[in-house]
Design a protein around this nucleic acid. Structure first.
Lengths: 175, 175
DNA sequence: ATCATCATGTAACCAGTTACATGATTAC
DNA sequence: GTAATCATGTAACTGGTTACATGATGAT
């Protein structure tokens, strides 16, 4: 249900083509939710069939035609309904944890190398998140207001990456 | 692939029936990976078809028959192969984040209530993890050795729950 | 009596991934 | 010429969830 919510939420801010939505997704919700263009297009078809979004085909001169989707009244109602339903916390579901859990067969060297590789990735992600957070902080208050909710999620992202980093360092030293 | 790895890993420690494996799963790997009995049984059927596990039907007097699965040489090789493949980090994928991201339509009251409900759940989970961690710490060194890898994953669990808690408190106060 | 535990499964469905496919335009 | 960007899709498959199903034993 989360992708549906995500797409409705993106369309609530601004209408757009599948392609445009995917780009907005990648630089926002995409930091903590994943999708592919295939799934996004599928979701948009589904929403259209359900009558929750309107779709207008726009011809362009130098670019291929595009389908611009926009939220209609029924879609807005559905978005509100989804927002009202309680969300339940999910598990971490990171394959690294399964590997470490089952890792007694693997030597310490291999595990340490894997943890180090993850550490580097999380370090990069943390740097990115901090940069994005700083950028939001620099905007005038009026603009910052519009980014308030996304900014809240970014802060969890930062805390998580910090936790990953600290853990990788701690257990890397112990392995 | 992670469930496959998880099941092979569990069988590597000790053979067991689907039912027994599920119970071991729930009190260990299940803290950060999810599964249902349906999926576990399906996975076991698959592993058996692939010839990675052996299966022996055991009749019991007062209990229904059970199928005891055990890792064979091919399964052990497959486990090693899976352990050697690098794992890539995943996204958080928690529906609460999607909701908050799209939450400008929802009032602050509703969001605050939802965050508070999550805070309570994470508080409970943290308490559980800390208790489990303490229990491991109390065991004699020889036993602790066997729980070393699981204990490492538990420590990430604790860090994550702490991050969730701190974040819920922070943004709950701000909303 | 009623409920939890032991023990296993089928079936339908939804969500997500990977591979394959097309074709123009623009920037280097 | 080569690669990136714009723009959309189909199809096969894997992984995960939910609903339905059975039936004995042991504890309260």
């Amino acid at each position: 249900m989360s992708l549906k919510l995500a797409v409705l939420g993106l369309l609530d801010v601004e209408p757009g083509s599948g392609y445009a939505l995917l780009q907005r997704f990648r630089t926002s919700l995409g930091f903590f939710w994943q999708t592919t263009h295939q799934q996004l297009y599928k979701e948009l078809h589904g929403l259209h069939e359900e009558g929750l979004v309107d779709c207008e085909t726009v011809s362009q001169e130098t670019r291929p035609d595009k389908k611009v989707y926009s939220l209609n009244a029924r879609g807005a109602a559905e978005l509100d309904a989804l927002l009202t339903k309680a969300a339940t916390p999910t598990k971490i579901r990171d394959p690294l944890l399964v590997k470490i859990f089952c890792g007694r067969r693997l030597g310490s060297d291999a595990l340490r190398a894997e943890v180090e590789s993850h550490r580097r990735k999380h370090e990069q992600t943390l740097a990115l998140y901090r940069m994005l957070h700083e950028q939001i902080g620099k905007r005038p208050a009026a603009v910052r207001q519009r980014y308030h909710h996304p900014e809240l999620t970014l802060r969890l992202g930062i805390r998580f990456e910090e936790a990953w980093l600290a853990w990788c360092e701690e257990i890397g030293a112990e392995l």
